Simulated scan of single mutants.
Amino acid sequence: MAGEDQDAVRLDKWLFFARFCKTRSVSVALIEGGKVRLNGTRVTKPGHVLRPGDTLTLALPGQVRVVRVASCGARRGPATEAQALYDDLEAAPRGE
């Protein structure tokens, strides 16, 4: 049963664990404000379930980030641990 918990996590917790938001209350505000899309669909409930393989589009202050969830994570760790939770889909240089 404990292994099942590793396969899914609340969206607000994941944004906090992955260091896209400084606090969970900031992540809740981002989600409820309509600034998050999960697999192309706007999500407004912080408790929405997120699983590895899901794609998130985040309208963050000054930038839009598109990431694929690689892992659910279990805590908010250092930046290197947080970066292992996702694959940045916008890593390629823009324009020519």
Rank of each mutant, 00 (worst) to 15 (best):
P52I: 11
L58R: 02
G40Y: 06
A59S: 14
T41Q: 15
D54T: 07
L50H: 06
G53F: 02
L38R: 09
D54I: 13
N39E: 02
L56E: 00
P46F: 01
T44G: 11
K35Q: 12
P46G: 00
L38S: 03
G40H: 04
K45H: 07
I31C: 06
P61M: 04
G62D: 14
I31N: 04
K45W: 05
L56V: 03
L60A: 04
G47H: 10
K35A: 14
G62T: 13
G47C: 08
K45L: 05
I31A: 05
T41M: 12
L60M: 10
P52T: 10
R51D: 01
T57L: 09
L38M: 12
P61S: 06
A59N: 15
P46R: 00
L56H: 05
G47I: 02
E32C: 14
R42F: 04
P61E: 13
A59W: 07
T44L: 04
D54A: 12
G62I: 13
P52K: 13
T44N: 12
P52R: 10
V43R: 14
V43E: 05
G34V: 01
T44K: 13
V49T: 07
G34Y: 03
I31W: 06
D54F: 15
H48I: 06
E32M: 08
G53D: 08
V36R: 02
G40A: 05
N39H: 05
D54C: 12
G62N: 08
L56M: 04
T55C: 11
P52S: 09
